[in-house]
Structures are given as structure tokens and as C-alpha cells.
């Protein structure tokens, strides 16, 4: 619905893709591991290979968790923007369908966080 206003009400969104210096905002959440209180937000280039996201970026975010080194990456299930998703590790984030402000969630089988509390 349009904003009810005293005059014309039209503004530029503050977070357009071109404002991020060649990166796209990507939101990532490791499910059932709420030691990390919320999903994280990272500016990533669209041409980054998905394998680099898994191999380099996620370690930087989550390696502090004792479950992290136990992750079997070939058994991980993914959802991208609300849909089941099987990433092609060799292809880039963009080629895998990630766009600006995409939400990527992943589930690591058999791992239930600190003392099984999903933390």
C-alpha cells in the first residue's frame, strides 16, 4: 500500500546493490547452532566460487563452535531464499542463483549444538 502522506512520497531505497562497492549482501544461518545468536550478514562478490564460501568464509564465521570441525559438508542440506537448494561448488555464488540480500540457510546432520540444546 502507498504511504498516506501530505505530498509526493517517493524515495530511493538505502540498500541498493550498487551501494556495496561491487559486493552483494548475503545472509547466512547455520541452523540449530544458536551459540551464534542470529544469522550473519556478509558483503560477497557475485563471482566468488561456492566452494570458497564453504571452504574459507564459513570457517571465519563459525569455526569457534566445537561442532564446526565435525561437519560433513557432503551431507549438509541447504535452502536458498526459502527453497531447497543443491549448490554447485565449482560455480560462483551468482551462477548458483544467489542475488543481493539472498538468505542461505544450512543444516548439518547429526549435530545438535552445545549439550544437544541446539546452541
Amino acid at each position: 500500500m502507498a504511504v498516506i502522506s501530505i505530498g509526493e512520497y517517493e524515495f530511493e531505497p538505502l540498500d541498493k546493490e550498487e551501494n556495496f562497492h561491487g559486493n552483494r549482501l548475503t545472509y547466512i544461518n547455520w541452523e540449530n547452532h544458536l551459540l551464534f545468536c542470529s544469522p550473519v550478514c556478509l558483503p560477497l562478490p557475485a563471482d566468488m566460487p561456492f566452494a570458497a564460501l564453504v571452504g574459507e568464509v564459513l570457517g571465519g564465521v563459525y569455526a569457534k563452535h566445537p561442532d564446526f570441525e565435525k561437519i560433513k559438508w557432503d551431507e549438509v542440506t541447504w535452502r536458498l531464499d526459502g527453497k531447497d537448494f543443491s549448490p554447485d561448488m565449482e560455480k560462483s555464488l551468482g551462477e548458483n542463483g544467489l542475488t543481493h540480500k539472498s538468505l542461505l540457510r544450512f543444516w548439518t546432520q547429526g549435530l545438535h549444538g552445545i549439550a544437544g540444546s541446539n546452541s
Binding site: 502507498a2 504511504v3 512520497y9 524515495f11 531505497p13 538505502l14 540498500d15 551501494n19 549482501l25 558483503p43
Partner: peptide, 17 residues
């Protein structure tokens, strides 16, 4: 009122900008 909230000054996004 989407047009109102697309203007939100979100600190994390502002840092990345």
C-alpha cells in the same frame, strides 16, 4: 508502507557501505 521502510538506516548495511 514499504516505501517508508526501504529508507531504514540499518547499521550493519551502513557499515558495509
Amino acid at each position: 508502507e514499504p516505501m517508508k521502510y526501504v529508507q531504514a538506516w540499518l547499521p550493519v548495511h551502513q557499515i558495509y557501505q
